[in-house]
């Protein structure tokens, strides 16, 4: 797939159906399409014209207890109906026992957490009968104790479960600025064969009490520095399905398509041999 895609959000449904711009795929947040409402019907209509990628935000792969079987069942029904080209989730957690929050919370990269992720990715892949992708998070803090770093954690997760890594280039850049992670070293150690998709998005800078933090806000164009890092990824790993994510303060569909076109140009011009 050498044409970039965009995130499917409610304001874009009508413009997409009207203008049908050339895009590699549309990526939808799975949980927005559970149930049989009008949104699900619109997604199925769009699925006739574009490949669909389903990106989950609520399964909580990193939860210390078991995955929610009902959530998995809803996801399975959606996947069976939509037949997406990609299915992904996050290297994060958001629920444990009876409580759940709408955020992607950080996981300490310990042996214990790795086992939890391996079990849950396997469970998810078994339920869906397909391989999934797992996305690196935006890091805002570091833990007191870890057993390995993020690149090793992801490599090991992919090696043991057969899942692929969804490399969010913006998250990697944000993490490098927020916790001093070395992005080049990270890319150096990430196994190219495991990388299955790229995400690109915008961030905002927040300064509080002299603490500068980049927030993965998905409400801005992709930053120059992130484009640079994307280029490095393309040269290291080759082409992968690439997504422009924009989740609030929505611009016109054209703006989003233009960003996707830039990624597409780079995929075609900068990578001599297609790896995928």
């Amino acid at each position: 797939m050498n044409q970039a895609g965009i995130g499917l959000r409610a304001p874009y449904v009508q413009p997409l159906l009207e203008h049908m711009p050339a895009l590699g795929f549309l990526e939808a947040h799975s949980e927005n399409y559970f149930g049989d409402g009008p949104a699900r019907r619109q997604l199925l209509t769009l699925a006739k014209h574009y490949p669909i990628s389903l990106h989950g935000v609520g399964l909580s792969l990193g939860r210390a207890d078991g995955l929610d079987p009902e959530h998995l069942q809803h996801l399975k029904a959606l996947v069976d109906e939509v037949r997406p080209v990609l299915v992904s989730e996050h290297l994060a957690w958001s629920g444990y026992r009876h409580r759940h929050v709408p955020d992607l919370l950080p996981v300490p990269y310990t042996i214990e957490a790795l086992q939890v992720f391996c079990d849950h990715v396997e469970r998810m892949q078994e339920a869906l009968d397909r391989a999934i992708l797992v996305e690196n998070p935006s890091n805002y803090l570091a833990f007191q104790r870890i057993d390995m770093d993020e690149a090793d954690f992801l490599n090991e997760l992919a090696r043991r479960t057969g899942c692929r890594i969804l490399l969010d280039v913006n998250n990697l850049y944000v993490s490098s600025q927020n916790i001093g992670l070395n992005a080049h070293d990270y890319l150096d150690r990430l196994k190219g064969d495991y990388v299955g998709q790229f995400h690109l998005a915008g961030f905002v800078e927040q300064v509080r009490d002299e603490d500068r933090v980049l927030i993965d806000s998905h409400n801005q164009p992709v930053a120059e520095k992130v484009w640079d890092l994307y280029l490095e990824c393309l040269r290291r790993f080759g082409r992968r399905p690439t997504l422009i994510e924009w989740d609030s303060d929505f611009p016109s569909l054209d703006t989003l398509v233009n960003q996707a076109d830039q990624a597409t140009r780079w995929m075609r011009e900068e990578v001599a041999d297609a790896v995928v």
């Binding site: 950080p106 805002y140 803090l141 570091a142 007191q144 927020n178 009490d209």
Partner: peptide, 17 residues
């Protein structure tokens, strides 16, 4: 559980949620 230099960053999650 958080490294000392980053404890205040828990506020980002508190605020998001």
């Amino acid at each position: 559980a958080i490294a000392p230099a980053f404890k205040h960053r828990l506020n980002i999650y508190r605020n998001n949620v």
